[in-house]
Design a protein around this nucleic acid. Structure first.
Length: 201
DNA sequence: TTGGCGATTGGCT
DNA sequence: GCCAATCGCCAAT
């Protein structure tokens, strides 16, 4: 079992590049400490929304909604989409430059019971597969937008001694613009990756 | 002030 | 696999 102790990631450990960060974050952990206990999961799928990307919310410049994308790397950018779901991102560039990594799927680890309650299902596989689902399971909403995940606080990035499996690459999911760019990263052997089978080789 | 649209999900076929 | 639900954002009026 891979349950060795977690160590919080320092900002200096994060690559100063959104695409590199997207790959780096595979196998790392999202940790949410709540009054009801710790919720955590191992990141198995990400997408990069880098500088100059027409599909990125930051493409047309800073606005009230996307301002967290312009914070120094390691800050949470949380947005609400389709009237139904929140999505958790990690900013990936220097201050004033927009770029972020969408966390698309995690493997649930700590606080599974609480996640099941929040999600209204006990099926592990459906708990945190997809950006909206993992945000709901972890209890992340707009209140978490702008939080520094590399400083003391409820939401952190962490790592442990587990090895990361082979990482696959594909186009991103659900886009119309810049839909051809291979900016999605995932752990090949994970059961907890979202998206169609055809994107999983 | 407004309307078109989106980095999704869940339910139904 | 397909499609409706749902609502905040922002470019254009």
């Amino acid at each position: 079992m891979g349950s060795s102790r977690l160590r919080y990631l320092r900002r200096a450990e994060l690559p100063v590049d959104t695409v590199e960060l997207a790959r780096f974050l595979i196998g790392k952990f999202v940790v949410h400490d709540t009054p009801a206990g710790r919720l955590s999961g191992r990141i198995v799928e990400t997408e990069a929304y880098p500088i100059g990307d027409p599909a990125a919310h930051s493409y047309r410049g800073q606005t009230p909604r996307n301002r967290s994308m312009f914070l120094k790397r390691g800050h949470a950018y949380v947005y609400f989409i389709y009237g139904t779901s929140y999505a958790l991102n990690v900013s990936g560039e220097i201050p004033g430059v927009g770029g972020a990594v969408l966390v698309r799927a995690i493997e649930p680890r700590a606080g599974i019971e609480l996640m099941q309650r929040r999600r209204g299902t006990t099926r592990l596989i459906d708990l945190t597969r997809g950006p909206g689902r993992l945000a709901q399971a972890l209890g992340i909403d707009r209140a978490y937008d702008g939080l520094d995940m590399c400083s003391p606080g409820p939401l952190r990035l962490a790592v442990n001694a587990e090895k990361t499996g082979r990482i696959g690459t594909s186009v991103r999911i659900g886009l119309t613009r810049a839909a051809d760019r291979a900016l999605r990263f995932y752990e090949r052997d994970s059961e907890y990756v979202s998206g169609p089978r055809t994107l999983r080789v």
